[in-house]
């Protein structure tokens, strides 16, 4: 077997494995496994309504933040 084939195979497989590892690490870091109940019942919280809700919440936060920044004591 050619040396470069071995290097390629090792390289590709370790790279792909590492991608999956980073995925898991990202999920642990962002707390996606913290609440096992919510994690298991996720399907109930995954509708369009919840997505809209999350988006609205973000917009609200951005607006409040802006209001705070614009605020100048007289």
């Amino acid at each position: 077997m050619n040396d470069s084939i071995i290097i390629l195979m090792l390289g590709v497989s370790i790279f792909l494995g590492a991608l999956a590892l980073f995925g898991i690490m990202w999920a642990i870091k962002t707390g996606q496994f913290d609440d096992k109940e919510k994690f298991l019942n996720q399907v109930q919280f995954d509708g369009t309504e919840e997505l809209n809700d999350a988006a609205e919440q973000q917009a609200k936060k951005a607006e409040l933040k802006k209001r705070k920044e614009d605020y100048r004591p007289e």
């Binding site: 609440d35 019942n41 809700d53 919440q57 409040l64």
Partner: peptide, 18 residues
């Protein structure tokens, strides 16, 4: 979560069910 989200001024609510 929903009821608090609807309140004006509430920015984030996270409830851990466990």
């Amino acid at each position: 979560e929903k009821a608090l989200h609807k309140m004006d001024g509430v920015v984030e609510v996270f409830i851990n069910h466990t």
